[in-house]
Simulated assay, not measured.
Amino acid sequence: MNYWLVKSEPVKYSWEKFNQDGRTFWDGVRNYQARNNLRAMKEGDLVLFYHSNDGKEVVGIAKIVKESYQDPTTEDPNWVVVDLSPVETLKTPVTLEQIKADERLKDISLVRQGRLSVMPLKREEFDRVVELGS
């Protein structure tokens, strides 16, 4: 199993809306590195859901329920989506400040590549964020 983090501005697509929908395809990725990360996602992989810009916090855990396929919002074959379903809301959101202050998370992609919208995580990074949110 692999672990990931995806970012969404809550005004565009919030964790609450995601939970209401129960499933969504992750579209709008127009960065090649993020696209390659989408292509690497496998069914069953776990994903941290991060509210960017407003909030700047990890709010929940999702899972990959369908591997990459053509992004239906564009005819450009370069872009793909995956399907996600919510798994669990964190009891306490984990803020970017908490992540930056945690020695065990000093190398997390969220800090090193802050603008990337889809990023891989090490299992220990995923587990630490979940622990902070428990």
Score class of each variant (00 low, 15 high):
64 I>K: 01
89 T>P: 05
130 V>T: 14
59 V>E: 01
18 F>P: 02
35 R>L: 11
119 M>S: 14
19 N>D: 00
40 A>I: 10
107 D>M: 09
7 K>S: 02
71 D>S: 04
18 F>W: 13
25 F>H: 10
53 N>M: 10
91 K>M: 09
34 A>F: 14
59 V>W: 02
26 W>P: 03
24 T>I: 06
20 Q>A: 05
129 V>G: 03
71 D>L: 04
49 F>S: 01
110 L>A: 08
23 R>A: 10
31 N>E: 11
76 D>Q: 09
82 V>N: 04
16 E>R: 12
39 R>T: 01
39 R>I: 04
95 T>N: 06
77 P>C: 03
52 S>N: 10
57 E>H: 08
66 K>Y: 04
70 Q>N: 14
7 K>Q: 09
19 N>C: 15
91 K>P: 04
6 V>L: 15
7 K>M: 06
40 A>F: 05
34 A>K: 08
127 D>Y: 12
68 S>E: 10
87 V>W: 02
131 E>M: 07
27 D>I: 00
130 V>P: 02
117 S>K: 08
74 T>W: 05
68 S>D: 12
2 N>I: 03
90 L>Q: 06
99 I>M: 14
65 V>F: 02
74 T>R: 08
38 L>F: 14
46 L>P: 06
131 E>R: 13
86 P>N: 03
71 D>P: 09
41 M>T: 05
27 D>P: 00
101 A>T: 11
84 L>N: 01
58 V>N: 00
34 A>H: 11
58 V>Q: 01
59 V>Y: 00
79 W>A: 01
78 N>D: 11
118 V>W: 07
39 R>P: 01
20 Q>V: 05
68 S>T: 05
115 R>S: 11
49 F>Q: 02
75 E>W: 01
7 K>E: 02
6 V>I: 15
44 G>I: 15
102 D>A: 12
19 N>F: 00
53 N>F: 09
47 V>F: 07
55 G>K: 05
23 R>C: 05
63 K>F: 07
